[in-house]
Design a protein around this nucleic acid. Sequence first.
DNA 1: TAGCTAATGGGTCGAAAGACCCATTCGGCT
DNA 2: AGCCGAATGGGTCTTTCGACCCATTAGCTA
Lengths: 214, 214
Amino acid sequence: MRTEIRIVIADDHQILLDGLSQALDSIPDLNVVGAILDGTQIAAAVATYTPDVLLVDVEMPGTSGISAISQIANLPPTLVVTMHTADEYGNAAREAGAVGFLSKSTPLPELAAAIRAVADGKNLLETDDVAALLDDYRAPTLSSAADSITEREREVLRCLVRGISRTEDLAEELFISQKTVKNHLASIYEKLGVNDRAQAVVEAMKLGLDRDWD
Amino acid sequence: MRTEIRIVIADDHQILLDGLSQALDSIPDLNVVGAILDGTQIAAAVATYTPDVLLVDVEMPGTSGISAISQIANLPPTLVVTMHTADEYGNAAREAGAVGFLSKSTPLPELAAAIRAVADGKNLLETDDVAALLDDYRAPTLSSAADSITEREREVLRCLVRGISRTEDLAEELFISQKTVKNHLASIYEKLGVNDRAQAVVEAMKLGLDRDWD
DNA sequence: TAGCTAATGGGTCGAAAGACCCATTCGGCT
DNA sequence: AGCCGAATGGGTCTTTCGACCCATTAGCTA
């Protein structure tokens, strides 16, 4: 199973670049390794960061995103993003080697799903029912450590993140004995590879175990 | 001192809206309370969320951002954002009641500074040296609890967030005795209003005490 | 049916943490 | 000269935690 999907984003608007980077990075299985403002540096960024997925804006000053990617050797699975709703660039994007084409009006969870799909080798431009395909990729691919955490254990973690950390308080909150709380915690520690509540909190937040899906 | 600045964002591009919301929200003193895709709902959103600052894209389908805000009663301090670098809309924005005008090529920290400045009553359109003004608003306004945390105490917190939680390990990492570690922790607990390491970690991450400014 | 896991619970024990008292040193500021 | 806060350190005491052993029940599934 893939642990994290490495992403490079290219867009000439700093705000979108910053915002999108942070938004994608906050999704546990997505990792933005490079963000570039300049279309001419796409090739260099791809070579440097070796991303699993490349995200490119069509509208770029100087070189257009499309012509930029068409010249890249060993192009990773690439999603082209446009400001406009019309897919006037759709064919051009396909010819340049892109495997997906999205509007900037796409909701973030759908973009995330598209990223996971193309990272998995799918080609959105050659798929009839794109919506159905993306449905298969909605949920983040959790790390093996995280997905062995049971529902009850996640409840314990959520309490920890909410500031309920004493065994006694956890027991009251969850309507179980203090002993059971300790058993759950011990199980959590083992699965996350940590030794105490403080480390468990850090891991839970990093892995997104404290929230109920993006 | 203001605790958190309440922000409403209006932009017709879902991705930018999602990304920017999350990016701004992750800054400790900024709080995105509303994000709307439709320019016609700006007035309603302002009435509902009563933001301290309004962020509007000029280019919106149907109603333009500018004409939308010009019709709003009790307009909060408003920043107008545009895709284009040229400030062709600058005058129109001013006349509509905006107090700032930014390109989407603005770096995020500068946008954050602009938000703080206008929330503080400044008018960027009537300021000669905007850069100098924004410099005064670079750093997040920390909550009173957080800014009494000393540098050494923050080092302890950073270690905790990095997974170093045992007193012995903290002592080694920081080259001090275990007793001093305990003293720092006790001081942190008091300032953050918590009782143990796990809660301190949660608070530190929430307040952004674990990172070195955005 | 047999086997597996999740969830619940028990007990013990040593190590660790947290709460309280305190002192010293070094800056900066008044 | 005097004060204060930050950083360093000490001691003691009680509570809590984590590690290790264990059992029971329910539910699923092979």
